[in-house]
């Protein structure tokens, strides 16, 4: 069953098509990878799904409901959460409050504040931030700030989670910790779309991958198919092959 579906999704910046006529369909429970060279339109597509920008044309459906034109907070409350490529934590709020905000506003359950507080602690424990829960978020390391964004997103109770380069800038140990975290999120039954430049992570975690180039979809398939696609190698991996010559 498809949980998120896009038809002809298009966005222009000035005269430039950042995302052009892209169709996609993400199955419930899967991990869906989004790759492409810098400036391919990956983050723009995330911004369109989460309504940070309005779409120029096309339609996006979440659980068979048209969500194009809705406000970001509505989309979040429907069950689509996200993280940001350049982390956007609340720097002066304690780590705990960063997560608590998601519990307060992410969904409309009738939880008591005690229940919310204990759930917030659970999410912090889940991403491994229990030790620093009262520290101001700005004092965390980059790896921990990225974990905090994941915890905050999870606190909104999503069915679909958009992860935008949560492994960029991390060292190898932190990358494998992040990969393990993404797998544990999937085990909770949450559908994941992830943008990532760390190929090892994408190839290991995702069932299917979509490749964007200059705002257009140029390939889609299993990691094996993508790795062997000549078109993809040419525009994407080709840069690297060229460079090593």
């Amino acid at each position: 069953m498809s949980i998120l579906e896009g038809k002809g999704v298009t966005k222009y910046f000035g005269g430039l098509a950042a995302v052009s006529n892209v169709d996609f369909s993400v199955e419930k429970g899967e991990a869906f990878g989004l790759i492409g060279p810098n400036g391919a339109g990956k983050t723009t597509l995330f911004n369109l799904i989460s309504a940070a920008y309005p779409v120029k044309s096309g339609i996006i459906r979440f659980k068979d409901k048209d969500i194009t034109g809705l406000k970001p907070y509505k989309i979040c409350r429907m069950g689509v959460a996200r993280t940001f490529q350049i982390v956007k934590i609340f720097p002066d709020l304690p780590v705990f409050s960063n997560v608590l905000l998601g519990l307060h506003f992410g969904h409309s359950s009738g939880m008591s504040s005690a229940e919310k507080a204990s759930l917030a602690l659970e999410y912090l424990d889940f991403v491994g931030l229990t030790q620093v829960k009262m520290a101001p978020a700005k004092d965390l390391t980059l790896a921990n700030q990225k974990r905090l964004e994941v915890a905050r997103a999870l606190a909104t109770g999503p069915e679909l989670l958009l992860l935008d380069e949560i492994m960029a800038g991390l060292n190898p140990t932190e990358v494998s910790q992040a990969m393990e975290l993404v797998n544990r999120i999937r085990e909770k039954g949450i559908t994941i779309i992830m943008i990532e430049h760390v190929m090892k992570a994408i190839m290991n975690i995702c069932q299917r991958i979509m490749v964007l180039h200059h705002g257009e979809k140029i390939a889609e398939g299993s990691p094996r198919e993508i790795a062997n696609s000549e078109k993809v190698i040419k525009v994407y991996l080709g840069e690297k092959a060229h460079a090593t010559c």
């Binding site: 907070y73 959460a81 940001f84 956007k88 720097p91 002066d92 506003f105 969904h107 905050r152």
Partner: peptide, 25 residues
């Protein structure tokens, strides 16, 4: 209250607040 928390989150990172379910406007 939770609205106080929402106000502070808007002051610090408005976009993130919106995507965390806060009706910022």
């Amino acid at each position: 209250s939770k609205y106080g928390l929402a106000l502070r989150s808007i002051g610090q990172e408005e976009d993130a607040a919106a995507h965390t379910g806060v009706n910022v406007v």
